[in-house]
Design a protein around this nucleic acid. Structure first.
Length: 254
DNA sequence: AAGGGCCTCAACCGCGTGCCC
DNA sequence: CGGGCACGCGGTTGAGGCCCT
């Protein structure tokens, strides 16, 4: 199969986006939507490839993106979902309203993976260097949103999934029911933001049918609190849940 | 104060997949 | 049915910022 040329096309700009480009892209999408990413940059007057435009929009410019640091609960959710789903960032992102797969992927590689490894290798005590880094870089990102709930690297060893999880941080079916109990997010009504720019803000929230299923459908905490689960079994489990609940297409269209 | 190293994250790259002709 | 196209996804990169010495 011949791959379609992309950004290597002559004259197309690469690299960081300028404010002007952002404005152009946002204005165009707000006005016309993004039915065809490949044609969009040309129609909008941008010297970018469609792929670049799509990434810029989905990862940065989308109005429903929740900027800022991840809450402790979000981080724990990512860890648990990653344990169950692996590197399926888009699937994980669909469970975290306002977060993008790219953002989650970055957080995983920069914070969470290291934390888990650290917890496994040094469950009691981090190295001096690490302590400094965690305290000065990572933790502020948590404490800024939920100082009372912030988990220090030392404390977070309790969330090591190979040994057990703090009950308060276990991913429960309640979490799936609404996504995240995010204190600063306006999702208290139990609705997810839907990434669909063709609908109004008022229409931009909906109740995912699958997530509204009876809570006993999700024995997540039971498996993740005791031992490292078999990934293949988990995959089959989730697949059966999804299929059994209806169609895969009923998952949030994020 | 300056330089070096580390960390973060936006953006790019390449592959897989679904749809259409 | 097969080829081409468009899109989505996951992996990777590198520039810029931050921190330590």
């Amino acid at each position: 199969m011949v791959r379609a040329p992309c950004c290597e096309k002559m004259g197309l700009k690469k690299g960081p986006w300028t404010a002007e480009e952002d404005q152009t892209l946002v204005s165009y999408i707000q006005q016309f939507g993004h039915g065809n990413w490949r044609a969009l940059p040309k129609q909008a007057g941008l010297l970018r490839c469609g792929k670049s435009c799509r990434l810029r929009w989905t990862n940065y410019l989308r109005p429903d993106i929740k900027r800022g640091n991840f809450s402790t609960h979000e981080e724990e959710t990512i860890i648990q979902l990653h344990e169950m789903l692996g590197n399926r960032w888009s699937t994980i992102a669909s469970r975290l309203p306002g977060r993008t797969d790219n953002e989650i992927k970055n957080v995983w590689h920069t914070h969470l993976k290291k934390r888990l490894i650290q917890n496994q290798n040094q469950p009691k005590r981090a190295t001096k260097q690490r302590q400094v880094n965690e305290n000065t870089k990572v933790e502020p990102s948590v404490s800024q949103q939920s100082a009372d709930n912030s988990v220090s690297p030392q404390q977070s060893s309790s969330s090591d999934f190979s040994s057990g999880v703090d009950d308060s941080l276990v991913l429960t079916t309640d979490d799936f029911d609404m996504g995240i109990k995010d204190e600063d997010a306006d999702y208290s009504s139990g609705a997810f933001p839907r990434i669909d720019d063709n609908v109004s803000d008022a229409d931009n929230y909906y109740m995912p049918e699958v997530l509204a299923e009876p809570k006993e459908e999700f024995p997540v905490a039971a498996t993740s609190t005791t031992s490292v689960p078999n990934i293949d079994e988990d995959m089959e489990f989730w697949y059966s849940i999804f299929v059994g609940a209806g169609e895969l297409t009923e998952l949030p269209e994020l």
